[in-house]
Write a protein that binds this DNA or RNA. Structure first.
Lengths: 71, 71
DNA sequence: TTTAACCACGGAGTATTCTCGTCATTCTGT
DNA sequence: ACAGAATGACGAGAATACTCCGTGGTTAAA
């Protein structure tokens, strides 16, 4: 599984767990709504800076967003 | 601690643990030597694609490179 | 049927990462 | 002290992340 897919899946799961829309998350993390959408579709390889900003909003560790199923 | 610093510290530690120079690592991960140097100095925010490529060479999980002291 | 919320997707522009060449500096071993 | 290896530093350009504008599709509720 590609790292982008792992990140996308974790992002989507954590976002929904918090009951946030892509737009809610984008606003709170000061990112663009279409960019969040693109990240969940593996269009881009996010920089670790945005991983950290998203993790903060979702109240998880940055490393959690890069962790696959059995880690 | 900034995410770049955490990544830089983990990168440097894991690289030395494998006995690799920046140039060795760069070559094996198909990255530029001066870029590895810059990453260890927190000049750039690496994309998750390069985190994954570096992690593979260093035989650690990508998430390990973003983990701070007590995670 | 309308209205609203949510999301996929395109294009164009800006900002940043990443590559490459080069030279300077520091470190290591003899 | 010296030579060679490893790293730091810098500028220029290519590649890609990221923003901002909009359009259309789906689903659920009024």
């Amino acid at each position: 599984m590609e790292i982008r897919e792992i990140f996308a899946a974790n992002l989507k799961r954590c976002r929904k767990a918090k009951g946030l829309s892509q737009e809610d998350l984008a606003h709170r993390a000061e990112l663009d709504r279409t960019y969040i959408s693109a990240l969940e579709r593996c269009v881009y390889a996010a920089s670790i800076d945005v991983v950290a900003r998203i993790a903060k909003v979702l109240e998880v560790k940055p490393s959690d967003l890069l962790s696959g199923h059995g880690d």
